[in-house]
Amino acid sequence: MVVEVTLKKATEDRKGLLTMKALPKWLGQSLYANSSIIVFLVLWEIAPRIGWVEQTFISPPSVVLETLRELLADGTLLKHIGVSLGRALGGFGIAAVAGIPLGFFLGGGVKLFERVATPLLRLLNAVNPFSLFPVFILLFGIGEVSKVAMIIWVCVWPVLLHTITGVKEIDPLLLKSAQSMGVKGKELFYKVILPAAAPAIFHGLKMSSGVAFFMLIAAEMIGASSGLGWLVWNAQTNYQIPVLFAATVVISVLGLSLHYLFGKLENKVINWKEHTPEY
């Protein structure tokens, strides 16, 4: 009995030592991987404080974090985040629901229609969305509809074109093999075509999620009274530099978070594909 207790204690002590040795290695790897970010934040903190740049124009990270805490405490930041996320997700969702089915139709439907329509779609995709601001405002006014319509416009093209590409690049031998085994109709679509096109579709969705937030911020600077874009514009107008930087940081974090979540969702759904790490 004494021998068993001694062995158990020795095993636990060994595990503890291994954990202690592994922790510094993990910490060192993490610090090395993010060294550029750490150096940037340190320089950002030091430069305004020692007079390299004016604090009037650039707020240190510590001041930005304190401003974020204050905005969170009084509920201002959460309100604007909720408004912006609602607009972005609404426009993005509509674009995905419209773009994916149309992409499957154009990619695998009538070849003549696909040849005629695809050049036009690519031309519309190349139109600078900022130049269409006056058109959307003219058609839908300066309310919520015009903002959501702008987001739909910029989001639908990556989803649509990547879905078309994904469907067209499916290996014909894969389809013939499935059909030779009696897989047809809906079963062929759900078991072969959709999984094969899924990587391209997810790539389009990730691109759309990024441009949705990008376009939203610009749209909220025109005729809005709430949202993160409005918060940035209002802070600039009233020369509230810490608030300006705080809102910009939140926008960046939300954009990166959406991209990261789509990457995780892709890894989970497309579990047969070799994945690359998300940064």
Results as ranks from 00 to 15, higher is better:
residue 277 P to C: 03
residue 123 L to H: 00
residue 181 M to H: 10
residue 119 P to D: 10
residue 263 G to S: 11
residue 222 I to W: 05
residue 76 T to P: 00
residue 221 M to N: 11
residue 102 L to K: 02
residue 47 A to T: 07
residue 67 T to F: 02
residue 259 H to Q: 13
residue 210 G to Y: 07
residue 104 F to R: 01
residue 272 W to N: 00
residue 114 E to W: 00
residue 257 S to P: 03
residue 109 G to K: 07
residue 189 F to K: 09
residue 229 G to R: 09
residue 251 I to L: 08
residue 194 L to D: 08
residue 248 T to N: 07
residue 79 K to Y: 12
residue 185 G to N: 08
residue 155 C to P: 02
residue 4 E to F: 11
residue 29 Q to D: 11
residue 241 I to V: 15
residue 252 S to E: 02
residue 201 I to G: 02
residue 130 F to N: 08
residue 113 F to M: 15
residue 273 K to S: 07
residue 262 F to G: 02
residue 229 G to S: 10
residue 142 I to H: 01
residue 273 K to G: 02
residue 182 G to Y: 09
residue 37 I to K: 03
residue 68 L to T: 06
residue 181 M to W: 03
residue 275 H to E: 13
residue 187 E to K: 12
residue 127 V to T: 11
residue 235 A to K: 06
residue 38 I to Q: 01
residue 272 W to R: 02
residue 143 G to K: 12
residue 113 F to S: 12
residue 72 L to G: 15
residue 214 F to N: 06
residue 111 K to D: 11
residue 69 R to E: 07
residue 189 F to N: 07
residue 218 A to N: 10
residue 39 V to Y: 05
residue 65 L to C: 06
residue 45 E to V: 06
residue 38 I to Y: 08
residue 264 K to P: 03
residue 120 L to P: 00
residue 211 V to I: 15
residue 113 F to P: 02
residue 231 L to A: 13
